[in-house]
């Protein structure tokens, strides 16, 4: 059975857009999670470290409260730690090399009409799709 949930997904998307819009109109910054985390790791003493830390605390705190209210909204993957670590390394390195991830390129970048972000989003959707296809339908069959 396909778990098709367009209404919560759309509402969630509107909230994601609202969060990114608040950061842009409030302090003029792009809400790219990897850019914010990466910049904080690169320059922990920057004047921007305060709001970057607050942003990450906000993300984690929403997880804490959201999980308490609706435990089914956060699930764990079955992957082994080596797979999780390998995937994390690829995501962290790749997002910094590409200067953006899902939030930075697919939401903010496309939302402001950036050609780079459209190319980035098409590229990572394609390689993610191919990876899932290989894992599920070629290796995993």
């Amino acid at each position: 059975m396909v778990d098709f949930t367009p209404v919560p997904a759309l509402c969630g998307g509107l909230l994601i857009g609202a969060g990114a819009s608040l950061l842009l109109l409030g302090i003029g910054r792009i809400a790219g999670v990897c850019g914010i985390v990466g910049s904080l790791l690169d320059a922990p003493r920057s004047p921007d470290a305060g709001w970057r830390t607050a942003f990450i605390v906000g993300l984690a705190f929403s997880g804490l409260v959201g999980f308490a209210l609706a435990p089914a909204s956060v699930t764990n993957v079955a992957n082994s730690p080596p797979a999780l670590v390998g995937a994390g390394l690829l995501v962290g390195y790749g997002a910094r090399l590409a200067n953006g991830c899902t939030s930075g390129h697919a939401v903010c970048g496309i939302g402001r009409g950036s050609t780079r972000s459209i190319v980035a989003t098409c590229t990572f959707m394609l390689t993610a799709g191919v990876t899932v296809f290989l894992v599920r339908h070629v290796v995993g069959r």
Binding site: A9, G12, G19, G58, S62
Partner: peptide, 17 residues
């Protein structure tokens, strides 16, 4: 603003699945 943005984004990600 940073905190509020993170909270909204996190809530949206959870609601969206």
């Amino acid at each position: 603003v940073g905190l509020g943005s993170g909270l909204l984004l996190g809530a949206g990600l959870m609601l969206a699945g």
